[in-house]
Every structure is written in C-alpha cells, then in structure tokens.
C-alpha cells in the first residue's frame, strides 16, 4: 500500500503531470458537454414540460455552456419548438453560463453536485440577460432530470422530480436516442 502511495507521489511530481492531468480533465469535460448538448436536443423533442418552458422563447435564442478560460464550450439554439445543438465553441451566444475552471465543472458533470451549488460556491458566472439565464437554468434542470439516474438526482437538483409512467417512458427513449445523437454530433464536429 505504502509503495503504491509512494509511486503516486512520484508520478505526481513528474514535470509533465500537471499538463497531463489538465488534458485528461479537459477531454472529460469536452465529452460530457457534447453529451449534454445532444441531451438538450433529444429531451427538447421528447419532454412536454421542456416544450412548455421554451414555448415563450423567441426563435434563434442562443446560449452557451462552458468552462473558463480555454473552454471547452458548447452553443445551443432554440429553433422551432426544440433546441438545436450547434456544436462546440462559442457561436455568438446571447447568454453564457461559465464554470470558472475545470475543477468547478467536474463534480457537476459527474453528478456529484448541482449547478446551483457551484453557483452558490462562486464557481460559475453568467453573461447576458439574467431572466433569460433563469429560463435556461430551468430547462437545464429538466435535461438533468432525464439524463441522470434517479439515485443521483438528489445531488444534482434542489428537488428530485417524481416521474409518472409517461415521463419514465420518455426517459427511456432519451437514453436510447442519446448515443446516436452524440455520435452524430461527434462525427459532425
């Protein structure tokens, strides 16, 4: 056991370790953001409460989610009665929600913490109209409710939603459709 700990200490002391660690974190966050972008698309097509929420949004409203200061970022847009994942990067968003660093984002992406908690811990900033940001926040909560397994939702959301049979069916469809959507976007980007 001691020799393992010693080995880890030596590994962490290597000059390339910080860069390697950051590369791994960046790649993980980049993949999760792509999954999230695809999940926005899929959930927006399937969940009625999502459609209710975005029904008042003007067409073409763009928002971005990402991590400062070098990314990754994703940009999404309301088009018709659904959300389109436009791809990676900041593509002229009207509203942006940024984690201050990779370490602030990772617990959220792992489902260990809600974005509200990171916001309360000064780990996030927003740029743009605050009331629109609140609307984005609500739809992000809906996406999280469909994306994360029930057991993790108590970490991610302030209030765990109770899904009825129809919503559970939607959740199953989201899981089925998410992987093809993610692969399609991955191929496109």
């Amino acid at each position: 056991m001691l020799s393992i700990q010693k080995g880890v200490r030596v590994f962490r002391g290597l000059p390339f370790y910080p860069v390697l660690q950051n590369r791994v974190k960046y790649t993980f966050c980049s993949i999760v953001l792509s999954v999230l972008g695809s999940a926005f698309e899929v959930v927006s097509k399937r969940a009625p409460e999502f459609n209710d929420e975005i029904s008042t949004w003007e067409d073409g409203r763009r928002f971005a989610i990402g991590i400062l200061s070098r990314g990754p970022y994703i940009t999404l847009e309301k088009r018709g009665d659904a959300i389109r994942f436009l791809g990676k990067g900041l593509l002229s968003p009207e509203i942006s929600m940024f984690f201050k660093n990779l370490d602030a984002a990772i617990p959220v992406f792992l489902g260990l913490k809600g974005s509200f908690q990171v916001f309360a811990e000064n780990g996030m900033i927003v740029d743009g109209n605050l009331s629109h940001t609140m609307e984005v926040n609500r739809v992000a909560n809906i996406v999280n409710a469909y994306l994360f397994p029930g057991i993790m939702l108590k970490n991610v959301l302030k209030r765990t939603p109770r899904f009825n049979l129809l919503q559970l069916t939607v959740k199953a469809r989201v899981y089925i459709e998410l992987m093809p959507a993610f692969l399609w976007h991955a191929a496109r980007n």
Binding site: F119, M134, E135
Partner: peptide, 13 residues
Amino acid sequence: AINDGSLVFNPVE
C-alpha cells in the same frame, strides 16, 4: 419572480 436571479440561492425550488 421565477425568472429572478435571486431564486438560484433559495434553499427550496
């Protein structure tokens, strides 16, 4: 009210 930024910090949704 539900679009006001202060709501993020309320303990209950």
